[in-house]
Nucleic acid binder design. Structure first.
Lengths: 201, 201
DNA sequence: CTTGTGAGCAAGCGATCGCTAACATATCAT
DNA sequence: ATGATATGTTAGCGATCGCTTGCTCACAAG
């Protein structure tokens, strides 16, 4: 094993450590010294790879965006059968992404990262909007099929779905992650989807 | 007007300023200097009223708890007619509390304040559990009346209700508070409650 | 009018923050 | 083998952090 790692590997390592630490301390919270220690570097060594602390978090934001988008793409492609399966795949992908990076909700929704950096803020807003759009689109197709209650607007249903995911993630985090997020999340999602179905009468 | 204020007034003023600033910067974020400037004191003057910075946030947590509990008590008492009205009153009270203190969700759910201070963490966990309990109890009564779908467990329904509130609060905050939280929240709650009702057949 | 106390300020402490400069060495290309 | 480059280190900068010290003075009680 080489004593020194390639810059690309180090960058990924640093970003991963930052996200891991952010989960415990809060978004934007871990200091450069903490992050450096986590990857076995001196604090100054960090600045070989990122010109500034803000750049580090921009890279972290980009990594998050890439991970989310990959998950959505997979959900939208291999579940091509119908809107019902596509919706479930989207929810599953989102829950899986949160399990992979528990700091994700805190990072996406917290003001710390957003406040300072308008670029990150805009990027995250666009990300959240995209997911909301995918969910709403699937629900719209369900409505067109008559698979949604007449009294339930697809946009409202999308709010129910996305707030359920986000709320469960927060609950999972606060509860010390004792429950299995994906399993419990999909169970509740199926219950919710059952409520969306039109009355048989 | 006296040049100097009574300590009790100052304390309340300081706590209010801290909560107001926390909304913009994130929980636990505003420095003692910022808070002091907001109330027209020097940074050192702050420590006449709170022995430590942590004590300030403990007082803020207590203020939040008192506000929430007062809202719940009102909702539980004056809506004594039935579980349906009680549930709506609880949701309305929670939305109103969030409108009064927009930093509330961030403070309740963020790790910054909780991580350092186990006392605050426990207090907030108890608060959230209480609200969840009130909601679940009302939904349980509805179920006993046969006013809930047979396939819908009251505990699951309570998750849907609380995650809706919390999710809307985050959305409200991120969207720059352009929507009217209470109005939109109650509208969506009513839609959701409609989904909970048993099928007429 | 005096006096004790409570509410405030100016100044500065040690620690930590993000970041830079100067220097060192592992690794790669030739 | 050797020079160039990339990946590190040590040391330290200025700013800011929470907090303490020593002092001032407004205000209420006697």
């Amino acid at each position: 094993m080489p004593l020194r790692k390639r810059a690309s590997d180090r960058k990924a390592e640093i970003v991963a450590a930052a996200l891991r630490l952010a989960d415990a301390a809060g978004p934007d919270r871990p200091s450069t010294a903490e992050i450096a220690r986590a990857v076995g570097l001196t604090q100054a060594g960090l600045f070989r790879h990122f010109p500034t602390r803000a750049a580090l978090w921009q890279a972290a934001a980009a990594a998050i965006a890439a991970d989310l988008e990959a998950g959505w793409a997979a959900a939208l492609s291999d579940a091509g059968v119908g809107p019902r399966e596509r919706l479930a795949a989207l929810v599953a992908a989102q829950l899986a992404a949160i399990e992979r990076c528990p700091a994700l909700p805190a990072i996406l929704f917290s003001p710390e990262l957003n406040a300072d950096d308008p670029a990150i803020r805009a990027r995250f807003a666009e990300l959240l909007g995209r997911f909301q759009g995918y969910v709403a689109a699937a629900l719209g197709e369900l409505a067109a099929e008559g698979a949604l209650r007449a009294t339930l607007a697809p946009a409202d249903a999308a709010v129910f779905v996305t707030t359920l995911i986000q709320g469960l993630a927060v609950r999972w985090r606060l509860g010390g992650r004792r429950m299995a997020l994906a399993e419990e999340g999909m169970r509740l999602f199926r219950v919710q989807a059952g409520l969306f179905a039109p009355e048989p009468g």
